[in-house]
Amino acid sequence: MNPETDTINEALRLDGNAVAGDLQMLMGFDVTLLQAQCGHCQNEGVFASLVAYVRGPGIVLRCPTCEGLVLQIVKTPTSIIVNLEGMARSVMYLPMS
């Protein structure tokens, strides 16, 4: 634990809104309103409220409750790899008609 890097990491922390553009290009729809359930602590919340770190080689999304890894995206020159291991499930509620 290094207090200085911890503070920098805290200040650099973003959320699901910040990665919505990349994911929309990838999936073809807006993910921010998905209800995502964390595979570690089972807490559920909107995708936009996941905490995001985007300054590494890829994108890391963590659960705001338990900090468990929910989703990881790695970009290589030829591909984009999405690791969804930490997501128990995600639900898109359809607008009521």
Binding site: N17, A20, D30, L33
Partner: peptide, 9 residues
């Protein structure tokens, strides 16, 4: 640029 993005905020 690309957008508009986001349906939550």
């Amino acid at each position: 640029v690309r957008g508009p993005i986001g349906g939550y905020f």
